[in-house]
Design a binder for these strands. Structure first.
Lengths: 216, 216
DNA sequence: TTGACAACATACCCGGTAGTATGTACCTCT
DNA sequence: AGAGGTACATACTACCGGGTATGTTGTCAA
């Protein structure tokens, strides 16, 4: 069973908490966010949160898991479709980028979570969870690596180290996480337009020819 | 007087503290790092740090300032040199990227500092400092924006929004901050090689032709 | 009707941490 | 030599925040 499939569906009762937590963690960061902050933004108290989650870390992990799951949900179908490498690469990158913008607060938590993963866990039971989350993240990156290396073999893309290329590609696609701000009058086409520029930048960076990128 | 010139030179006595603080802040993040952590990594106690800095925030701000100053020191000479736009752009981007790797712990603090800037300050006096740091950061980005737009006018580069292009370029050049790890046997040429790949990716992303990038 | 349980709120404990107040050794200048 | 200042260490306070223990209300099943 792949790590992507281990994530249980989110019970509706948890959805409000997850959303509030994601927003708080995004605004102040994990350690600067208190459980009281999350509760306050829910119009509730700590009791509600600790009734559903055993610890602050558990809550954060669930936000991470939820964020990653949303990424799998939109990207996996493309990766598993019987289309060409070129079409997959263009579609996956663009889709990922749009997802970053649409679910920004969750994805910011995923980003910070990756840093927490690198620092390691405190308790042994947390370490178990962290290993699972790490695997989830690695599996997601692996989907892209597979397509990237296929693209290189087919002469569509051209780069030296596929690991570095992968990192750089994700940096571009994740970029809106750090400067995009929701504002009034921004509809789906605005988001599409921003994602388009990021994706074009990334695909150019991967050494793809202009004519293969034109319609992204 | 530009914001870049307001930074006072670092007194030697502060250098050890700044280095230790940068390392701690990088490893655990700002709010998860205690003053005692920094002191312990210095083999000292809080007394030493509070003798030189009025608060934890002040210390962090000085790390930020120091990090930014190092960037100005290496990039400004290139930007002010009488060379062509193409040469400036290639040199500035590569130099910035190398600086990110070489002074990684300070630059990670700069990165986190930018997020703190967006969240705003608590006390009014901190806000004053934050405005100065914000200006410092903006001025630095402006150096690159100037060259970027010149490159666009000269037909060297091709992109839609210069703001987004600037962000994406920095994301690529800053990328090593998040995945580069110091290891044994990594000499200057290794760093050069990594920086080269990031810079090539960024310049490609900016729409530059292969023949203009070849020797980066 | 009532017992049991879910879904919270309230009240409390306690460890950690920013910041302060004070002590002390050393150094320098007169 | 002694007075004052620098550069710390030590000891202490106040508070915040994670976690827990317990109370309260609504719901549902028998």
């Amino acid at each position: 069973m792949s790590a992507s499939a281990t994530a249980s569906p989110i019970r509706p009762v948890h959805e409000d908490i997850l959303n509030a937590a994601a927003h708080c963690f995004m605004e102040r960061g994990y350690s600067a966010t208190s459980i009281d902050d999350v509760a306050r933004s829910l119009g509730a108290t700590k009791g509600r949160i600790y009734h559903h989650y055993r610890s602050k870390a558990d809550l954060f992990f669930d936000v991470f898991r939820h964020g990653m799951q949303m990424n799998f949900d939109v990207v996996t179908p493309i990766a598993e479709s019987p289309r060409s490498t070129l079409e997959k690469l263009r579609d996956m990158t663009k889709t990922h980028c749009v997802a970053m913008i649409r679910t920004q607060h969750f994805q910011r938590c995923v980003w910070e979570g990756v840093e927490l993963l690198q620092r390691g866990a405190t308790t042994p039971e947390q370490r178990e969870v962290l290993i699972e989350l790490q695997a989830m993240r690695d599996n997601y990156a692996e989907i892209f690596r597979t397509v990237l290396e296929a693209a290189k073999r087919e002469g569509i893309a051209e780069f030296e180290s596929s690991s570095i290329a992968l990192q750089l590609m994700f940096m571009c696609l994740n970029s809106p996480l750090f400067w995009y701000r929701e504002r009034e009058g921004q509809d789906a086409s605005t988001i599409e337009h921003i994602a388009s520029q990021c994706t074009v930048f990334a695909l150019r960076g991967l050494g793809m020819k202009e004519e293969l990128i034109a319609d992204v």
